[in-house]
């Protein structure tokens, strides 16, 4: 199968964040960046699907500044065959603009399947994959927690609020990947060496008009320090009293 995976580079989610002097971005000093977690699941899912199919091509795409090439190389060290970098000074906050740039690029690719993470950690918006599918005019399954493909047809599972949905779809299609589909492999030394020689094409992204901009970023207020009421069963009556009189939830 010919599979494209669109990935994003995001800061380590365990970081403590600070706001940059501009007030409209995070301070990147000292932050570790890597392929986003959900993008990692998507790359792994693509590799496993092609391994199972006994061949095919996995192509990774990323939009953004030159630093995204590091994540594209990582995807190739995991096993992707080649990479395409759509150059932009920054990833805009307007997901539709990004989807437009990706769709323009993917349209002529002849892909059976295009995978995305269900959202990226930084913006947590989950717009780009689904919007790209819409612009390509192909079916889209969002937030798949299980995925299989056979005979030109895909099957997936989606977690809903208090239920799960089992779906079927024809190819070509777009699927956005939730946790649970596949744990990303660690690149082997051999894979890392091989990735250095794999083709990475870089060209400008066709973003068009951008209609959403970040005006401000701020850290949410800290929760006021809590109270430890006491130890063991003896503290239970005090807790229940406070839930009634102070928190008023009982």
């Amino acid at each position: 199968m010919k599979i494209a995976v669109c990935i994003k580079r995001t800061p380590d989610s365990e970081s403590r964040f600070k706001i940059a002097a501009s007030g409209a971005a995070i301070d990147e000093t000292g932050l570790k960046f890597d392929m986003d977690d959900f993008a990692g699941y998507a790359v792994e899912a693509a590799l496993q699907l092609n391994e199972k199919a006994g061949g095919g091509e996995t192509v990774v795409y990323a939009l953004g500044p030159d630093s995204v090439q590091e994540s594209l190389r990582k995807a190739m060290s995991m096993g992707a065959d080649r990479a395409v970098h759509l150059k932009a000074d920054a990833v805009p906050a307007d997901g539709i603009a990004v989807a437009r740039a990706l769709a323009a690029e993917l349209k002529a690719g002849g892909y059976d399947l295009v995978l995305f993470g269900k959202h990226a950690f930084d913006t947590s918006a989950g717009v780009i994959g689904t919007a790209t599918a819409e612009l390509l005019g192909v079916p889209c399954v969002t937030a798949a927690s299980a995925l299989s493909v056979a005979n030109g047809k895909g099957e997936a599972r989606r977690e809903l609020e208090g239920a799960a949905e089992l779906v079927e779809f024809p190819l070509p299609a777009v699927v956005t990947i939730d946790e649970g589909v596949a744990r990303p492999r660690y690149p082997s030394l051999k894979g890392i060496m091989a990735a250095k020689k794999k083709p990475l094409e870089s060209k400008p992204a066709q973003l068009g008009t951008i209609r959403i901009t970040v005006q401000k970023m701020e850290l949410p207020p800290e929760r006021p320090a809590g109270r430890i009421l006491g130890e063991g069963v003896a503290a239970v009556p005090e807790l229940v009293k406070l839930l009634q009189t102070e928190a008023k939830v009982l």
């Binding site: 800061p11 964040f17 930084d122 913006t123 947590s124 959403i212 005006q215 970023m217 949410p220």
Partner: peptide, 20 residues
């Protein structure tokens, strides 16, 4: 239109300006 949206797993609050 201006909206607030928590990003970075609720660790940063973003204010977005939307035109159109």
């Amino acid at each position: 239109l201006t909206v607030k949206h928590p990003g970075y797993a609720n660790k940063v609050t973003m204010t977005l300006v939307i035109t159109g």
